[in-house]
């Protein structure tokens, strides 16, 4: 692809082997995740599916945190709107339709993302973070208080849609098939997002992270790129919300509360920002430790205290996160 002397310093063979190694690794992880529900007991099957969903949410926010350099505390809003959008589709249309739920969820998240993006991308750094946090809290308050529509405190309960391919196929989700469906969505999202982050557009986002003023000076309308980045991020966060709604058959206001956004940021930092897979690993790590702590010490145990200590230790000794060391390699 490259011409001239550059192809000497970057021979095709190493490029190929890098790609090969990457996809072999990808296939191995996929194989493990595909086989997992066949060997895991019911509880852990659901647990793994949930990790993937949180991972998708964390991955979506990595687009902003890791690639564009904007820390968003608004992802609970996108996640929640995805969730309530799916709920709307599943409650209104009978029989509940999976694809319609996804469509509604994405629509809800896109609306919220457009609103948040339009106002908050004018600001930078901590001001951006605070603004997104405020917007997500506005959505929380609306959802929490508008009981007639959103169920308020009690949330909404609905039945799980079938997996359908129109006119061809219709089946109930089992925990295993739901896991595979979620896995397919999350893996597909990963491949797509990785490609987008390696595209010219993705390079502009990383350029904004590295040096915003210079990016503008070489001719990029930075605000427009940021708006699209927030929209993209919000869409995938909404997708995670839809999956969560389908998995758990309820939508609750507590997920729109800003602690969800906080968890998302923590997954990112633990797993390694700017890697896309890191946040999934971070989500898994976080959930596993929480699960272990409550298994050992019981449900009432204030698990956040030891988790906080672990988090601090990680920040000190592993500031790039679990996968941060592979950052350049993963993005090549």
């Amino acid at each position: 692809m490259t011409t001239g002397p550059l192809s000497k310093s970057m021979p095709l063979t190493t490029k190929l082997s890098h790609t090969a190694v990457f996809w072999i690794g990808f296939c191995v992880v996929m194989a493990v995740l595909i086989v997992a529900p066949l060997v895991l007991p019911e509880y852990w099957r659901r647990f793994l599916t949930e990790i993937l969903i949180w991972g998708l949410l964390a991955m979506s926010s990595d687009i902003l945190i890791g690639y564009t350099g904007m820390v968003s505390f608004g992802h609970s809003a996108f996640f929640g709107l995805g969730m309530y959008g799916a709920a709307a589709a599943l409650l209104i249309v009978s029989p509940p339709n999976l694809w319609l739920a996804i469509l509604f969820g994405l629509g809800g998240a896109a609306g919220a993302a457009l609103f948040v993006a339009y106002f908050s991308t004018r600001l930078r750094d901590i001001y951006f973070a605070i603004t997104t946090l405020i917007f997500s809290q506005i959505f929380y308050v609306i959802i929490f208080t508008w009981t007639e529509v959103t169920g308020g405190e009690n949330g909404l309960i609905f039945s799980r849609p079938h997996f359908t391919i129109p006119f061809l196929y219709d089946t109930r989700f089992s925990t295993a098939t739901l896991h595979w469906f979620v896995l397919a969505v999350v893996a597909g999202s990963y491949v797509l997002l990785r490609r987008i982050m390696q595209s010219p557009f993705g390079m502009v986002l990383q350029s904004i992270r590295e040096n915003e003023a210079r990016t503008r000076a070489i001719g990029y309308p930075v605000e427009r790129y940021k708006i699209v980045a927030v929209m993209l991020s919000g869409l995938f966060a909404g997708l995670a919300g839809v999956l969560y709604a389908v998995q758990n058959q309820f939508a609750a206001a507590e997920f729109v509360f800003f602690t969800t956004s906080g968890d998302t940021v923590i997954f990112n930092v633990m797993g390694g920002i700017g890697t896309l897979v890191g946040p999934i690993v971070g989500a898994g790590f976080f959930q596993l430790i929480r699960e272990l702590l409550s298994r050992i010490f019981g449900d009432q145990f204030p698990y956040l205290i030891p988790l906080g200590v672990i988090f601090i230790v990680m920040i000190i000794f592993l500031p790039q996160g679990l996968l941060g060391f592979a950052r350049r390699w993963l993005n090549r």
Binding site: M1, R195, I196, Q198, S199, P200, F201, M203
Partner: peptide, 11 residues
């Protein structure tokens, strides 16, 4: 190609 989201940037 500044808005291209599909191709690899080195392509």
């Amino acid at each position: 190609h500044a808005w291209n989201m599909i191709s690899h940037h080195s392509a």
